[in-house]
Design a protein around this nucleic acid. Structure first.
Lengths: 178, 178
DNA sequence: AGCAAGTGTTTTACTCGTGAAACATCCTCG
DNA sequence: CGAGGATGTTTCACGAGTAAAACACTTGCT
């Protein structure tokens, strides 16, 4: 009955596998393979977001906020709101809101462009940079721990496959039309 | 300068790789390996959610709504609101709201338990079941197309690694404490 | 110069999800 | 039997994101 599994390597079943099995038994004709990737990515993302953000929350930051600060830190120079939106994959409106909060908290400073008075330039304050630099190592340690159930070889393999998928998606999406 | 890459296999770089490179150059001491998995999972999930839901939206359903209907369909029997919440990994409040809309749309029916008058039992109406059965194949076809950039062998590999990661996460998360 | 079109940013109105409290009902045990 | 606590579900108040409109400014054209 449980024939799809590779072998008795002690691998406990994940919830997505169970869901897929249910669908198979209701619609044996359907090719449910995509669920095993997409369903798992979604579920992993959800679980990781819950777990992963613990060190960030301790620093009083949400992940989107940290992403914004991180973009400023890692690029090493000022960014405009629209650049921040691109860099963090969020909408301009969301960036505006976050910037408002983060500047109020003194983590980010705003400077108007002298030539073009529409645009703003954002940079980290000292406090902001210290917060990022202090939080990032903890965050990475925590993420390392979260992933430690997978041995290094598999982690590398997974990272590489995800990279391939992602670069395909980033290149091709938008070309597809439902 | 660009030494970490495996080889010139023609693989276009994904955005996460670029972000990781930036961090490396700012903090060469940090182990950024987890980002290559977690960052990519998050980014894939975001991209997939945008793309992937096209056939669902045509059916007038959001993904959470479809997940709810799908849970009823694939289990094949009635479910209570709390079972639906568990099954779709969402909060009870969210399930209540979705059920309200879906029953108003005539896709789901509610029946009170005769013994315990607190609990409700939900089932698909004929219209609901037809909608699920009509939409799922299109959805799967679409997902297949979205993933088609990866050859079948790699898809299988990826699914399997994600399954391992997910079952680790589902088992271990909560045991970790930031 | 001065207007139209374009671009960068913010505001607005709205949707959706959440946790906590409220509500309804059941169960247990004195 | 009836109070107290547990359990299933819904309501409430709120936070966060979005698309589209509004706003502010620049640029190019005549």
């Amino acid at each position: 009955m449980t024939a799809t599994n590779g072998g008795p390597t002690g691998t406990r079943q994940d919830t997505v596998a169970a869901v897929v099995r249910q669908w198979q038994s209701v619609h044996p004709d359907l090719d449910t393979a995509p669920m095993e990737i997409i369903g798992r990515i979604n579920r992993c993302a959800a679980l990781l977001q819950q777990a992963e953000d613990a060190p960030l929350r301790r620093a009083g930051l949400s992940r989107p906020e940290f992403d914004l600060l991180g973009a400023l830190r890692r690029t090493g120079h000022e960014l405009t709101p629209s650049e921040l939106a691109r860099e963090t994959f969020s909408s301009g409106a969301a960036v505006t809101k976050r910037l408002k909060l983060l500047t109020e908290r003194g983590l980010v400073e705003r400077r108007g462009d002298s030539r073009d008075r529409r645009v703003a330039h954002l940079r980290l304050t000292d406090a902001g940079r210290e917060l990022v630099d202090g939080t990032l190592p903890e965050q990475l340690d925590y993420e390392t721990a979260v992933l430690s159930g997978l041995d290094p070889h598999r982690q590398h393999e997974l990272a590489s496959l995800l990279g391939e998928l992602l670069s395909q998606l980033e290149g091709r999406l938008g070309a597809l039309r439902g």
